[in-house]
Simulated scan of single mutants.
Amino acid sequence: MSGKIIGSLIVAISLISGVAIYWLQLYAFYDPVNAEVEVMRMTNVVTGEAEEIIADDLEGIDANSSPLRFRACFTTSSSLAMLTETYVVHEEPTPLTAPGWFDCFDAVTIGHDLEQGQAVAFLGEKDIRDGVDRIIAVYPDGRAFAWHQLNEKYDE
């Protein structure tokens, strides 16, 4: 009889722990980005400095627990032709997946579109945090998506 109680207790504690870990990973640490405070920047080809770009309808999430948790969706009225002539194109963009509840950011679709040339990735800001760059992908219709990814500091 006591073996059934102990076994049930172990199963119950495991289930509670699993639910808690799931919730912590997907919901607990994310905060909405303040669209009035957050500024989108891209690195200028000539100066190498990050310059503010037009970013309307900004919706984003971030977390203090990791610099890689930043994701944002916005629109820009700047043309893709002007952006490619003015800002550094990023050669190895790797969109990182966002939590399922953050619907505007679909890393798989963005990654596929970047590979197919349907969008262009730019270096937003180099070392926005130590060893982490902000990457911005822009579509011809003005839709844009931003995320953070590790830079060459952490390449093996």
Rank of each mutant, 00 (worst) to 15 (best):
K4V: 05
I5E: 03
I5P: 03
I6F: 06
G7C: 13
G7R: 15
S8E: 10
L9P: 00
I10M: 02
I10H: 03
V11Q: 05
A12P: 02
A12H: 05
A12W: 08
I13W: 00
I13A: 00
I16S: 05
I16E: 01
I16C: 01
G18N: 13
G18M: 03
G18I: 05
A20N: 02
A20M: 09
I21E: 00
Y22W: 12
Y22G: 04
W23F: 00
L24K: 04
Q25W: 03
L26R: 00
Y27F: 07
F29L: 07
Y30H: 01
Y30K: 03
P32S: 13
V33N: 04
V33M: 01
N34P: 01
A35G: 13
A35V: 09
A35I: 07
A35F: 07
V37I: 13
V37R: 09
V39E: 12
M40N: 05
T43G: 03
N44R: 03
N44M: 01
V45K: 05
V46E: 14
G48D: 09
G48R: 10
A50Y: 02
A50H: 00
A50F: 00
A50Q: 06
E51T: 06
E51S: 10
E52R: 05
E52C: 03
I53Q: 00
I54A: 08
I54S: 04
A55M: 04
A55R: 04
D56M: 03
D57C: 11
L58Q: 02
E59F: 07
G60I: 11
G60R: 04
I61G: 01
I61A: 01
D62Q: 11
D62C: 12
A63G: 02
A63R: 04
S66P: 08
P67D: 13
F70I: 04
R71V: 07
R71G: 12
A72N: 08
A72Y: 06
C73I: 03
F74W: 13
T75Q: 14
T75C: 14
T76V: 03
T76H: 09
S79D: 13
A81T: 12
A81V: 15
M82W: 15
M82D: 15
L83D: 13
T84C: 06
T84Q: 06
E85G: 06
T86C: 12
Y87L: 06
V89E: 15
V89C: 08
H90M: 11
E91I: 10
E92C: 13
E92N: 15
P93Q: 06
P93R: 02
T94E: 15
P95K: 10
P95F: 12
P95S: 11
L96H: 14
T97W: 13
T97L: 15
T97Y: 13
A98S: 11
A98M: 07
P99N: 14
P99A: 07
G100Y: 12
W101M: 09
D103M: 11
C104A: 05
C104Y: 08
C104H: 04
F105P: 07
F105Y: 11
F105S: 04
D106F: 10
D106I: 15
V108F: 15
T109N: 07
T109F: 03
I110E: 10
I110H: 12
G111H: 11
G111R: 09
D113C: 09
E115L: 12
Q116D: 15
Q116Y: 08
Q116R: 09
